[in-house]
């Protein structure tokens, strides 16, 4: 996996480079918008992490130029501008995800992983059911089966489980879960998502599901397929 990091703050850039390299990504970096755009056009990447405010060429301009040139590399925008309006703007210009500074590294890694693997995730979304161990999630009928047994789930619980299963083996942060299930741009800032996951987990345990929702400390959750 090749990742391009376009970020003008040196400490952040070097830290991200190190962290992503440790995760097994091949990382290239650029310190301003011009270099970033040049590298993005010349080399091919699986993902671009793009700072919003850059010297020489603004992040959104880089993004627009890339997209108008037909480059469809997933782009994660990093920004100090945190309002919903700014976020909408970033996504409208062709960004695939938007993360506000200061961010948790784990959150960034989780989002990068999901973006980098997205093509596979997309094909999963089109399937009509997800099977894992003794669990079957029927997307069309909005039903959960454990073995042959039908388990009643509330709509939000269903969405929660579905998102976790669609991203199995990937770390999913609380914010990502909230945004996927509730579809509002807002950070509840409480343990409310944990409580929801705990309830779902309890429900699965009660029906002897072999699928477990694991906790990743400080980040969120992960369903392991093995």
């Amino acid at each position: 996996m090749k990742v391009l990091i376009v970020e003008d703050d040196r400490t952040t850039r070097e830290f991200l480079q190190q962290a992503l390299t440790e995760q097994g990504y091949t990382v290239e970096t650029a310190g301003d918008g011009q270099d970033g755009l040049f590298m993005a056009l010349e080399l091919s990447f699986d993902l671009i992490v793009l700072d919003r405010m850059l010297p020489k060429l603004d992040g959104l301009t880089v993004l627009t130029t890339l997209r108008s040139g037909g480059n469809e590399t997933p782009v994660l925008i990093l920004s100090a501008l945190d309002s919903v309006d700014e976020r909408v703007k970033g996504l409208k210009h062709g960004g695939d995800d938007y993360l506000v500074k200061p961010f948790a590294l784990a959150e960034l890694l989780a989002r990068i992983e999901i973006l980098a693997r997205r093509p596979a995730g997309l094909s999963k979304a089109q399937t009509t059911e997800i099977k894992l161990k003794n669990l079957t999630l029927d997307m069309l009928g909005h039903k959960l089966m454990i073995g042959d047994e039908y388990v009643e789930l509330q709509p939000k619980e269903f969405k929660l489980l579905r998102y976790l299963l669609e991203h199995q083996d990937q770390v999913v942060s609380r914010t990502m879960l909230f945004e996927a299930v509730w579809d509002y741009q807002f950070d509840p800032q409480t343990n409310v998502i944990d409580v929801h996951v705990a309830r779902l987990r309890k429900k699965l345990n009660e029906v002897n599901s072999l699928v477990e929702i694991g906790t990743v400390r400080g980040v969120g959750y992960r369903v392991i397929s093995e």
Binding site: Y184, V192, V195, R199
Partner: peptide
């Protein structure tokens, strides 16, 4: 400076979503 883009919002659905979120707490 926020919320300049306004759409039609169905308030009852929105409240239901919020209740669903807070319910376990």
């Amino acid at each position: 400076l926020l919320g300049s883009e306004k759409d039609r919002v169905s308030l009852d659905e929105l409240i239901n979503d919020a209740v669903e979120l807070i319910q376990p707490l």
